[in-house]
Write a protein that binds this DNA or RNA. Structure first.
Lengths: 188, 188
DNA sequence: GCTTTCTTTTAACAAATGTTAAAAAGTAGT
DNA sequence: ACTACTTTTTAACATTTGTTAAAAGAAAGC
C-alpha cells in the first residue's frame, strides 16, 4: 500500500481523518494478466488505482481493437461513463500484466462526498486533473502526426514500449501497425 | 440571465442558498464578434458560461489554426489548464459572434469550494461532466473517419454549419478544408 | 533443440488525404 | 449593379496511410 497513499495525497491535500475515511473504503485486488476489469457496454461504477502493473482501454471498430488509453503504476483507472454518469462505458479495460489494484465503489465515494468537505474537494480535484490530461490527449491527437505522437510517447513514456505490444500502441497513435512499423524504420 | 440559471442547476442540484452564493459571483459580459477571450500561452483562470453566441478554441500548428472545440449557448467555457492548474493554456478562445457571457474567477470559486459542501460537489460534478464529454471527443477522434465525424456533427449539431466557417469545422474534424469539401460533395 | 504460436517487419498495390493554385460562389459596402 | 473581399469548391499531382499477404523474428511449450 505504497504508491496509492502517495498519489491519493497528491491529488489534493487531506487531513489524516479524511484520508483515513478514504482508505477504509479501499479494497486490494490481485488480478492476472489478461483479466478484463471492465467490459464494454456494462455499467462499471468503480474507481481503481493501479499499484503495480499496466492496463489498457480499448473499443472495437469494424472488428478491430482500438486502444485509447494506457494506465501504469500510479494511474487512476475507471470507465468514467460508468463511475460518473452511471451509464454503460464505451471501452473494455484489460490488464496487460499481473496487477495489484485498489478499488473503491462509487456508492461509497458518493457517501463520502455528501458528508465531508475535504473529500468532496478531493473528488473535484481528481476529476479536474483527469480532465486536463484528457484534453491534452485530445489536442495532441488532433494536431500531431503519428510520427510526432510516437516521438512524444518515446520521450514521455519510454518504458511503455517494453511492456506493451506495438499493435496496441499503433491504434493508440491512431494508425495501423504497418504504419507504425514504417515510422519506426524511418527513425533508425 | 435565463440559460445560465438552468444550466447551473442542471450540473448538480443546489439549495437556494448555495445557488445564491454562486450567482453573486457571476459577472455579465457583452463582447463583440472576433473578441479574443483567452490568448494561447497566458494563464486565464476564469470560468465562462455562454448565454448567447458561439466561440471556438484553437491552437496554431505550422502557422495554421486548428480548432479543437466549439461552445454555443449553454456551454461552459474555459482554458481548463489555467482555471484548474493555474498554468498557461494551450488554446486561444475566440468569439465567432457577438456574445453574452457570464464569468466567475477561479479565486472566488475556490473560496466557495473551501466553505460550502454543496458547491464543492457542484464543482466536482462540473469537472466530471466535462471529463466524460472530453473523453467522448477523444474516442470519436481516434476511431472515426473524417466522413463519420462530419455525419455525427450534422446529426448532433446541425445548426453549427450555419454559424461557423467550414475551415474551422475541417480542422475540428482533423482534416483540411479541401478534404471536408470532398466529403461534402460525396454526400450530395 | 525443435516445433508452434504470436508479434513485428517488409512488400506491392489501392485508397485517402495533403498541397498548391485557380475558379466559382457568396457577402458587404458603395 | 459594381467592386473588393472572403469563403468554398474544384483540379492536378505528391505524399501518406490503409490493406492484404508473406517473410522474418521472438517467445512459449514440449
Amino acid at each position: 500500500m505504497e504508491k496509492v497513499l502517495v498519489k491519493l495525497k497528491e491529488v489534493y491535500p487531506l487531513s489524516g481523518a479524511a484520508l483515513g475515511k478514504l482508505i477504509a473504503k479501499l479494497q486490494a485486488l490481485s488480478l492476472p494478466k489478461g483479466y478484463i476489469l471492465v467490459r464494454e457496454g456494462t455499467v462499471a461504477n468503480k474507481l481503481y488505482f493501479m499499484e503495480k502493473g499496466i492496463a489498457r482501454s480499448f473499443c472495437y471498430k469494424d472488428g478491430k481493437e482500438i486502444t485509447f488509453w494506457f494506465g501504469a503504476e500510479g494511474s487512476f483507472i475507471s470507465s468514467y461513463n460508468g463511475y460518473i454518469a452511471n451509464k454503460p462505458g464505451y471501452g473494455t479495460i484489460e490488464l496487460l500484466e499481473d496487477c495489484i489494484l485498489f478499488s473503491i465503489d462509487q456508492a461509497s465515494m458518493q457517501a463520502l462526498f455528501q458528508t465531508d468537505l475535504e473529500l468532496a474537494n478531493w473528488g473535484r480535484k481528481l476529476a479536474e486533473l483527469e480532465l486536463i490530461k484528457t484534453e491534452q490527449l485530445l489536442i495532441s491527437q488532433l494536431f500531431k502526426t503519428a510520427h510526432e505522437k510516437y516521438q512524444d510517447l518515446l520521450a514521455e513514456n519510454p518504458g511503455l514500449l517494453q511492456r506493451v505490444q506495438l499493435g496496441h500502441i499503433a491504434s493508440y497513435l491512431g494508425v495501423t501497425q504497418v504504419t507504425l512499423s514504417r515510422i519506426r524504420t524511418k527513425m533508425k
